[in-house]
Amino acid sequence: MNGQIHFTLNGEKVTSDRHANERLLDVLREDFKLTGVKCGCKEGECGACSVLLNGVLANSCMVAMGSIEGSEVVTIEGYSKTKRFQALSDAYAQTSAVQCGFCIPGMVLACEALLAKNPNPTDAEIRKGISGNLCRCTGYNAIVEAVKIAAREGKGLW
């Protein structure tokens, strides 16, 4: 079932001739060299491979290429060029929320998805928003704190 799949990747129109049942994660990492998209499990459990798919947080390891025709995919590489990213990055730096960093690109996109829906989340809402993204290093507090700082200091961005 090979053919061309068309989608938008970090704002650019792209095509892929991968088979429809291939994982978006592998295509992003191998064909587009977007290695900021991490693989922690390949079974939809860790969130390291998170991307924004039409603005919604998705585990790219669970997304089949056949399902993304015409979709808009944003990875950390694209998102890191935005002002919103800058606000989140500054906040993460303030709380030293980046430890090993492996969960972080996915985590940042989870924070974006959350703030886009809810610009002033409570602690509990933040914890719920990032609950699909495992982090083994931080204990999550510094990340929760960073989201609050970003929401406060990035006023108007979300």
Partner: peptide, 10 residues
């Protein structure tokens, strides 16, 4: 942290 930016930006 020194490795903050490379890690957070992917």
């Amino acid at each position: 942290k020194r490795d903050h930016f490379p890690k957070i930006s992917g």
